[in-house]
Design a binder for these strands. Sequence first.
RNA 1: GGUGCCGUAGCCAAGCGGUUAGGCAAUGGUUUGCAAAACCAUCACACACCGGUUCGAAUCCGGUCGGCACCUCCA
Length: 497
Amino acid sequence: MAQKFHNTLSDRLEVFEPAEPGKVRIYVCGPTVYDYAHLGHIRAYVVYDVMVRHLRQSGLLVQYVRNITDIDDKIIKRASELGESPLALAARFTAAFQEDLQRVLCVAPDLEPKVTEHLPEIIALIERLCAKGAAYAADGDVYFDVQAFPDYGKLSHRKVADLEFGASGRLGDGEDQKKRHPADFALWKASKPGEPSWQSPWGPGRPGWHIECSAMCMRHLGESFDLHGGGLDLVFPHHENEIAQSEAATGKPLARLWVHNGFIEVNKEKMSKSLGNFFTARECFRRVEPEAVRYFVLTTHYRAPLSLDWTVGEKGEVTGFPQIEECERRLDYLYSTKQRIASIAPGRIDPSAPVEPELRELPARLSAALDDDLNMPVALAVTADLLKRANDLADLASRKQGKVSQGALTAVRAAFTALGTELGLGLDDPQAFLARVRSRRALALGLSEAEIEALIVERFEARKNRSFARADEIRAQLLRTGVELMDGAEGTTWRLL
RNA sequence: GGUGCCGUAGCCAAGCGGUUAGGCAAUGGUUUGCAAAACCAUCACACACCGGUUCGAAUCCGGUCGGCACCUCCA
C-alpha cells in the first residue's frame, strides 16, 4: 500500500518511496527549550507521531530523529531573567517537554540530539561552507552567502528579490551591517561576555539558529534522507536555510519530502509565544485528559488550521476547553465500548456464527485513510464506525438468548489494536481511564464520591423493596448536583454531566 | 509589495470531476419499574458570491468579497 504525502517542495501530493526500500529516515524539528510546550507544539509532535506510527504499521523500519535546541538567544535571555544558567534552564524544559509528549502518548524518537552535543559537527559544516565560498566570516560572526546558492527559495517558493526585508520589524541589531546581502543569515555568532560559548576558528561563539539542524540531521541520517517535518512557520526561513547550507555543502538534496503541519489558532490568529495567546499543554492537562488533547489534534487534517475555543469564568479566568472536553467524551465512549466488549461472557459467544465482512475491513480502512496524506479525520470516521459496530455486538450479547459471533469479536479486537498502533488511541486501561475522568469531574464540581456511593446503596435497597418513589427521589437529587445514575446488569454506575 | 492558505448544512469537519464521509447538538423510535448508556431514524436535495469549461463542478479555470499565514522569534 503506497503512502501519499503533500510535499512542500513541489507543493503537490506525492507517492512516498523511501530511498532505501523498507527503511525510512525522518527528521522532525524539535523545540527550542526555553519554556513549557504549548498546544501548538503538541499538535506538531502528535501529527508526526501518527505519521511514524503509521509508517511502522505499514511495515517500514522507521528511524525517527527529533532534535532539542538547547542553546539559543531566547534561552540565554530567559535564563538571565530567571537568574538560572542557560544550560540548566534548557535541561529543565527538555525534561518537561519529554514528559508532556509522553502524556499525549507520543512514541519517543529513536534519537533526540541536542545542539550542545554537536558543536564539532556544526563547526565542521561551517568550515566546509567557508571552504566552498558559500559562507564568509565577519568580525567573529560567520554568515551564509545566499547569492552563492542559486536554489535559494525553492522550498518556500519565493525569490530573494521578492523578499521584503525587515517585514517582521526585527532588523537593526547591527547584524545587517556585517552582511553582504540582507538575506544572508548567521551560521556562527560571536558571544558576548558571560554568554555560553564554544571555541571556534572564528573565536568564541555559538551556532546560529539554522545550522544546528543541518549538522544534526546529516550526522544521524546522512547527507540525504527521506522526510523532514516541522511546523508551517519553519518553512521560511528555517527550512529554506537548512536546505541552503546543507545542499551548498554537499551538493545533494537534503530531504526529498518536506512536510509541514498547520497552526493551532485562537480567534483566527496563530497561537504563538510572541502573541502571548497560547495555552501550555500542562494548563490543559489540568482540565482534560492528555489523551483528549491528542484526540483533538486528530479531528482536523494536519495541514489545515485547528481553531481552539475556551470558556471563561466571571473573573475572566479560563474554565474549560469545550472542544477538548468533547474529545474526552468521545474517549469515554471508546473506553466504555472497549470495556463492554471485554466483559462479554463466554456463554454469550457463538464460535460458529458468521462474521460481517465489514468488521474485518476496519483496520485496512484505517490504514488507507492515513495513506492518503495522513487523513486523520477520516481515520476517526472509521473509528466511529468501529465503536458503533462494537456496541451493536455488546447490545446483542446483553439481550435475552443473545449470542455474538466469535469471529466478530476477534475482528473488533483487531480493529481496536489497529487504533492503538496507528493513531495511538485507546492504549490506556479502560477502567483506569473512566475512573480518572470521573474523579476529576467530581472534584471539579466539588462532589464527594463517597456520598454518591452511599446514596446509590440506599437507592439499591429502595429498589429492592420496590420503593420506586424513594429511588426516583434519589435519582433526581443526584441529577440536580450533576450526577447521572445508570442502572446496568452489573449494578448501578454513575457519571457526571 | 511578494508568496501561499482558507470560506461546506445549527456547530465542528472530510472531500481533489460523477456512488450516504464522520462527529456534536436537536427531534422521534427501540430498550428501561423510571432513567441513562447503547442502537436505529430524521435534520442533510450543504458547499462565500459572479461568470466560464464539461454530458456532469463543493471539486477545474477567471474574477469578486471576507478571513488568515509567511517575508530572518515561532511547531
